[in-house]
Design a protein around this nucleic acid. Sequence first.
RNA 1: GGUCGGAUGGCCGAGUGGCUAGGCAGAGGUCUGCAAAACCUCGUACAGCGGUUCGAAUCCGCUUCCGACCUCCA
Length: 486
Amino acid sequence: MNQSLFVYNTLTHQKEEFTPINAPHVGMYVCGPTVYSDAHMGNCRTYISFDLIFRYLTHLGYKVRYVRNITDAGHLESDADEGEDKISKKAKLAQLEPMEIVQKYTVGFHEVMQILNTLPPSIEPTATGHIIEQIEMVKTILEAGYAYEVNGSIYFDVEKYNQAHNYGMLNGRNLDDLLNNTRNLGGQEEKRGKLDFALWIKAKPEHLMKWPSPWSVGFPGWHLECSAMSHKYLGEQFDIHGGGLDLVPTHHTNEIAQNIACCDKVPARYWVHTNMLTVNGQKMSKSLGNSFLPHELFSGNNKILNKGYSPMTVRFFMLQAHYRSTLDFSNEAMEASEKGFKRLMNAITLLDGLKASSTTDVTIAPLSQRCYDALNDDFNSPVLIAELFEATRIINSVHDGKMKIDAANLDELKTLIQNFVFDVLGLKNEQATGDDLPRVLDFIVNLRSEAKTNRDYATSDKIRDGLQHIGIQLKDSKEGTTWSKI
RNA sequence: GGUCGGAUGGCCGAGUGGCUAGGCAGAGGUCUGCAAAACCUCGUACAGCGGUUCGAAUCCGCUUCCGACCUCCA
């Protein structure tokens, strides 16, 4: 089986064969949430996308160290040096300790990630836990001559850096373009260059989150933590660095500059960026006011939602689009995904009960290979799902007696479902029932069969319609009656 | 304004030169006591206009519209 994996690299603008620096080990860093408010569904999409990548790499046998940070030191509200950090701002408003805010939203984030069945990262480092590493990195960058101090704050000297390196390597822009198209913001008097960004910021007296450093009591700049923590846990150079597409021009660009200034190495070889979740064609974002939260989507408790959708329906919906495409949210699209997901899960429920024949009408190996081909082509989950509906058709046909499958192929089919549906796509069958329900339903179904035998269709239909109303669907076939949750 | 990306059938969404995914919705059929489910069949969709080519949704040019980034953002 050919299992060459190709990954789209933002750095080179093309798909490249994935070859880890130190196979079978893979280092992957993903920029995580800033925990000053609830993560919305757009944020969740990114983490689901990287969960797919993490799961597939693991499935292929790689030993992945997946590092995803928690930004709890707070990004600045703006790049202006009098900017206040978001976490401190929220804390003052709520009359809470900053770390109380951090704790609340970190716990909430973890809960949502678990509900969406994303695997926890191998390491989830916090910015506040790595102040020392960040200070050390600032020192190194200062020694290298790519930073300067003004009034206790340290700034990265982009123009000087660009003389020796290519600052715009990630988004393909040259420095002159950037300089000519940067807006002039107030409060940047301390900076020498328009593109310079803060590595360390001297805190105002009223600032809540601050730490001592050689230059001032202050706090780290907003790109530094990722450089410091990826370096600490994954080394000077690792395999994959990821995040949302909106991080490319500023955050990741500055991260690369910091790491190169520090270690003279581009920190990661493959830069993977996920596209945005949109609503009516516009990026979901808090500031636009078009965002909604996971629990609102699950419950339907938001004015733009017609109804609630289960967490796995949401996950399935997102995996039906490729991670590098925008995905537009709509109630219609969600309902389509909900039905499709149920069809898939209903078929999988039938899988255990399938009987093997001595002959087979289907061979699973080619289907299995197509599933791998899909994922090997830059984690193409929508194509994978299309193949899984082929598996669905096979399962249903065998169940209906319209198709035969032998033991070996049935076994392969079960392996395929386990591998791709559960292990790689990370879907769960939400139709799992309580212990007693199957036995109770068997009893009721038998009762109805007796009524049918007696041609008492009034009673049999009453039972069927009644169960339908409760949310349990009966299906008659020659072999008897089966049921499933709607 | 600058840079980049997108426009696929009723909806969502794959697809980079010929073999024209998939889901949902819709039509017909099989099955069924009737249904439901399932299975089978059906849609010649690729923003517009030119061009390259034996052949283009796919390559090139222009036009229109939309979006992202340039300011925190997954």
